[in-house]
């Protein structure tokens, strides 16, 4: 028996919004420690890794490890049927070929359940090597989304250059060129407005804008985003989900000329 409850459907809706543009389907691996999903996009350029800890749920029960392959488009249709303040419970029997989403209104007067067929996706997890990143940047998630959106107008790719002084995002194309420089902040009132740079070595890396823009669909989940970079390895874009876990996107760099 598997049962996971969140007192508020908003978080689950936001999580799905953050992955459904990149992934058509995904396997949710459930164990007593929580729910994990790891999947590459269709082009195998990026990888999504979602971790939801069992202690972050309002109720969590997982008697046996369970892998549930889900069509994320179908899951999105079902979650659209939940009000934001509904309680959502995900339920499945051991070895079942369906999963049930139950939505309960706050006053308990409306209870709906939606059963969805599971898929056999046969997805195998890739091992992600432990990496000491040369640069780790924490910045407001909204600011990162804004920069990715703005620079995508100028080029298909963005160059991220990180030094001790700051981080610079650049794009150039037929229209011209664009540069956005962010300096590390000191003495900000609110932690979520801070820009913090931890640098061992400066890095310059080039990434495809369309993937960065897809990652920013996670912006509603978190005030801050963390970018981890080293030369010649994938960028990690991490959004923490308060009290529940995190979503990490890994993006392979572009091949330099």
């Amino acid at each position: 028996m598997f049962e996971a409850r969140l007192n508020n459907a908003t978080t689950l809706k936001k999580i799905l919004d953050a992955i459904k543009d990149l992934l058509n389907e995904g396997t949710f691996d459930c164990s007593d420690s929580g729910i994990q999903l790891q999947a590459m996009d269709n082009s195998h350029v990026s990888l999504v890794s979602l971790t939801l800890r069992s202690d972050g749920f309002d109720k969590f029960r997982c008697d046996r490890n369970l892998s549930m392959g889900m069509n994320l488009g179908s899951m999105a249709k079902i979650l659209k049927c939940a009000n934001n303040d509904d309680t959502v419970t995900i339920k499945a029997q051991d070895n079942a070929d369906t999963v049930t989403f139950m939505f309960e209104s706050q006053n308990q007067e409306k209870v709906s359940d939606y059963e969805m067929k599971l898929m056999n996706l046969d997805q195998e997890h890739l091992g992600i090597p432990e990496t000491d990143y040369s640069c780790v940047v924490r910045m407001p998630a909204m600011e990162f989304a804004r920069i990715c959106r703005d620079l995508a107008q100028f080029s298909e790719s963005v160059v991220i250059c990180c030094t001790k002084e700051g981080v610079k995002f650049s794009a150039s194309g037929d229209v011209g060129s664009a540069n956005v420089k962010l300096a590390q902040t000191f003495n900000v009132d609110k932690e979520e407005e801070a820009i913090v740079i931890e640098m061992q070595e400066p890095v310059v890396l080039t990434f495809a804008c369309r993937y960065l823009n897809a990652f920013t669909k996670a912006t509603p989940l978190s005030n801050q985003v963390q970018l981890s970079m080293s030369a010649d390895v994938p960028l990690v874009v991490e959004y923490r989900i308060a009290e529940l876990g995190h979503i990490r996107y890994y993006l392979a760099p572009k091949i330099e000329d």
């Binding site: 590459m40 082009s43 195998h44 350029v45 990026s46 990888l47 195998e124 997890h125 890739l126 091992g127 992600i128 090597p129 495809a208 390895v233 994938p234 890994y250 993006l251 392979a252 760099p253 572009k254 091949i255």
Partner: peptide, 14 residues
């Protein structure tokens, strides 16, 4: 995608 590395080139297959 010829100017683009793929993500599974960097990670360890199962």
């Amino acid at each position: 995608l010829k100017d683009q590395f793929q993500i599974d080139q960097f990670f360890i297959p199962p």
